[in-house]
């Protein structure tokens, strides 16, 4: 056999060997920030509202992915709460986010956007509710406060934290990109042009 055959054969065998099969999805459509669960590419993010890198990743990368790809049902973005223990207000923010998720995707995305955009403000003075009250309508805010009293909010957050720990999430943001039966774990953020180039290759 010639060398020209040997090299691609070796590469193909190695690529097949290193391919990581995708794990079974443990998500519901309500956890999608954008897109549908059956989209060809799925991005699952474990994020902490008090983490500056998570803020950058959401505002500079994920929002663009949602605008560009989720509207065309090419990508599904799923967000999991993963409040880190060393962030004193992360759990509080995660509770508001989880309660907003139960109001609907529109309200949830609004609350997430407000929490990340005003991260410096509420981290400084602790005014998580103040930031959210500016973003939501009075009706939605009243409904959100009612939902916050539901003890299952904490249980839902604990479940997502446990899911993250099971998937070896140790820092935030950590995301899992799955497509074509393969899943890749990425620790930290990725610039939008790089992620865009990668997604384009997967959906072309």
């Amino acid at each position: 056999m010639r060398m020209s055959y040997l090299v691609p054969t070796f590469c193909a065998l190695l690529a097949a060997f290193v391919a990581v099969p995708a794990q079974a999805p443990a998500v519901t459509p309500e956890q999608c920030v954008g897109g549908k669960l059956d989209a060809p590419v799925r991005i699952e993010v474990f994020s902490d509202f008090q983490c500056p890198a998570c803020r950058t990743f959401y505002l500079d990368v994920i929002q663009k992915v949602v605008e560009t790809y989720c509207s065309r049902d090419k990508v599904c973005v799923i967000y999991h709460e993963f409040p880190l223990k060393n962030h004193n207000l992360a759990r509080v923010a995660a509770r508001y986010s989880k309660a907003a998720q139960r109001l609907g995707r529109k309200q949830w995305v609004t609350v997430m956007g407000a929490l990340y955009t005003s991260q410096a403000e509420w981290t400084w003075d602790g005014s998580v509710e103040g930031v959210i009250s500016r973003a939501l309508s009075p009706q939605d805010l009243a409904e959100l406060k009612k939902r916050l009293e539901d003890p299952s909010i904490d249980a839902a957050i604990d479940k997502e934290v446990a899911l993250g720990e099971k998937r070896e999430v140790q820092s935030t943001p950590t995301f899992f990109l799955s497509s074509r039966g393969k899943e890749e774990r990425v620790v930290g953020g990725v610039p939008y042009p790089v992620l865009k180039g990668y997604i384009d290759r997967l959906i072309d």
Binding site: V186, P191, V194
Partner: peptide
Amino acid sequence: YIKIRSPLQFAAVLSGYQLFPDSLIL
């Protein structure tokens, strides 16, 4: 092997150096 297994993670590492243009990262 670990880089082939996680190309996007490796791309993230390369972009983290802030030395290479985004078009060259992938």
